[in-house]
Amino acid sequence: MNTEINIAGVTFKNPVTVGSGTFGSGMEYSEFVDLNRLGAVTTKGVANIPWPGNPTPRVTEVYGGMLNAIGLQNPGIDVFCERDLKFLEDYDTKVIVNVCGKSVQDYVDVVERLSDEKRVDLLEINVSCPNVKEGAIAFGQKADALFGITSELKKHAKQPIIMKLSPNVTDITEMARAAEAAGADALSLINTLTGMKIDINRRTFALANKTGGMSGPAIKPIAVRMVYQTAQAVKIPIIGMGGIATAEDAIEFILAGATGVSVGAANFVDPYATIKVIEGIEEYMKKYNVENITDLIGAVH
C-alpha cells in the first residue's frame, strides 16, 4: 500500500497536511501529535515584518463551524526563519510556508528571504485571507490581479508555489486558470468563506472585525464542489481543504480531484484529528484494496 503523493516534484509520505493558521508552525500541536507522521506541516501566514493582527474578539463559534478574524498576526519572516523553521528541522515531514503581504513587494521580500532556506519545500501564497484590509484577498478576487502576482512571484521563488484560492468569487475555475496560466505549480482551496455573526443580546457584532472567515464542517460541500470544478479546469495539483475532520471527508476531496488534503479547524476540536485522518485513509485503502492513493485522485464518476 502506497500513500505517497507528489506535488510539484515534492514527494509527501501521505496526502495529509494542515490548514495554514490552524496549527501554528506545529510547535503547539507537537505535544499532541507526532509531526513526523504528517505529509506536510503548513505554517501560519508570515509577512516581511511582524503584523499585530485584528482587535478581539477574533473568534466565535457558529452552527456547523466557526468564524475567525485573526488578521494574520505573525512575528515576521526573520523570527519565523530563526525559530519556526529551526524547530521544524528536527522533523521528517515536508514544510509548506504560507506567505502573506500587503503589496506585491511584501510577498516578493518574503519569497526571496525564503529562497535559501533548505527546510522550505513549498510556498503557499495567501491571496485569499478575508480579514485584512490591504493585500491578501485583493489579489485573489480578480483574475488579472491573481495572474499578475503569481507571475511576479514565479520570477523570484526558488521553491514551487501553491496559490491559495478564495471561495469568495463568482467562478473559482476562472481564478484557477489564471493562476495556472501565470505559472503556479499547485493550488490550495478553499480558504474561509466570509461570514458574520450578530450577538442579539448586546446588539453588537460577535467579532470586532464585524466579518470573519467561516470554517468547519458546514463549508465542506462547498469546498468539495469547488475542488471538483477546479480539477476539471486545470492540470496542476490541488490541495483540498474546507471542513475536513475525518478520513471520510479527506477521501471525498481526493475523489473530487485533490492530491493533498488539509485538516484545519478540526485541529481545534480534536488535536489528534490529523493522525486519525491519516490512519482512516489507510483503513479505507485496505478495505477497498487500493494499492496507490494516487489511484483515488479524481476517481469520482
Partner: peptide, 11 residues
C-alpha cells in the same frame, strides 16, 4: 478556539 496557543484567537 484552540486553547493551546496555535490559533492566536485570544490575545
Amino acid at each position: 478556539a484552540c486553547g493551546v496557543g496555535a490559533c492566536l484567537g485570544c490575545v
